[in-house]
Write a protein that binds this DNA or RNA. Structure first.
Lengths: 238, 238
DNA sequence: TGAGGTAGGTATACGCCGTACACTTGTCAA
DNA sequence: TTGACAAGTGTACGGCGTATACCTACCTCA
């Protein structure tokens, strides 16, 4: 009776649960997404969530679907001027994916952690494959190219590397000389990066530039293979 | 007194803890590496571990160090015949890293999850940078190239993609026609991959081939930039 | 010799987590 | 009216990481 009117606890649904989970992850970080905290956010008892998702794994799958579903759709093949347009079509889509993933910084980690792809991710991959095929790539080449893209396909790569961002502050005071002794090349590189990045904010690397650099290098490599009518195992044209 | 003799509970030490953790992860999976199970494995009470590692994060860091420390060292620069040898030196080292990481399948996930690199990883990166510099790469180009390699530097990439391995078994019976309707390009590709892989075991993809394909494509791209004396932001030679 | 510090192992307890299971309650079809 | 069903509740269990206090064997040095 009262409940029907009270907006803040409108009836739960799978979608409302997933939306709330994404919102919670966005604002409080992925570590805050526990069944208990999420249920609290929804004004409900923890076990109530299990009427809408089977378990936490499925919740995370659903969150991935929400995020990947936000990525702009690809340019329609019919709008292409030539097969060579594959490159800009793929490039645009991947950068769109990156824009979306950057809005949900937790998402890349969660995507990596899934053990089988969700339907929405499968559809994304399918449309990506379609672009290569429409661009004249053989099935085999498309296959290898998809593997080579890996997670870059969704707009992210694990960095494993945060050079100046972590090194420079870390290395203030006497720590730097010890660092320079132990990792001379790394420090040289970090210093150069920090210097070069004066124009950019905060002395870190320009992540967007690095991403596009790597992406374009790969796409150029793909195009070269396509043009030479890549047939079978001979990945090194040399 | 008795304890001194009894081999199975020789005195604990940081190294023994880390070795046991790696062994446990290797045999029982990373999920089995909890402070409690690990302590049990060592015949000791859980809190005893905290005398040798500050907390679980540090334990995981230590495990990464053990694994990365197992990677074969690089070919010495002095042994190179020409600067162009950078490519085979880098290639060999990365494939050595891959061999090591494959022996510890949990390691790539753990490495990704660390938030700042451990000293051993820093040293690995330093030696990798050294190879590019010795090969005649400018600092800037080395920087971008390191970013582009990302986790491939350590011999792995997140796959996000398991095509035939997961699709084919999944798609037996009527599921396949539904699949083919929903993801036509993906199914086409998976079928082709499964067919092509008759020679390989288990109808999955040849992960090693895919890895080397992507790696060589990147290295060739790097070499091309190096040869044209890459100076500043112009990543697309077109 | 013996007093005190210290390193290494122990015991107990707290708060978090995911979720199994049994229950109530509101809704709607037959 | 009844009875099935969907949705929310309450309680409880076993697992986790780890704070805190304690014990005890050993080493050092006066």
């Amino acid at each position: 009776m009262v409940q029907q009117v009270e907006a803040s606890r409108a009836a739960l649904s799978r979608d409302r649960v997933l939306q709330a989970a994404v919102a919670l992850a966005d604002t409080a970080g992925i570590d805050s997404v526990s069944m208990r905290k999420l249920s609290q956010e929804l004004g409900v008892v923890p076990m109530a969530l299990y009427k809408h998702v089977a378990n936490k794994e499925e919740l995370l799958d659903g969150m991935v679907d929400v995020v990947v579903g936000e990525i702009d759709p690809p340019r329609r093949h019919a709008d292409w001027k030539s097969p060579a347009d594959w490159k800009s079509a793929v490039r645009q889509r991947i950068l769109a994916a990156r824009r979306t993933l950057l809005r949900h910084p937790w998402a890349s980690r969660v995507i990596e952690s899934r053990r089988s792809p969700t339907p929405v991710v499968l559809e994304y991959m399918d449309s990506m494959i379609a672009m290569f095929r429409d661009g004249g790539f053989s099935i085999d080449l498309t296959h290898h190219v998809m593997h080579a893209l890996g997670s870059r396909m969704l707009g992210f790569t694990q960095e494993l590397f945060d050079d100046s961002q972590r090194l420079a502050p870390n290395a203030q005071a006497a720590g730097l000389v010890e660092m320079a002794g132990r990792y001379p090349h790394l420090v040289e590189l970090a210093m150069a990066a920090a210097h070069e990045a004066d124009s950019v904010v905060g002395s870190g690397c320009d992540d967007q530039f690095e991403f596009e650099f790597a992406l374009d290098l790969q796409l150029d490599g793909f195009e070269r293979l396509r043009q030479q009518g890549w047939s079978s195992k001979a990945p090194t044209p040399s």
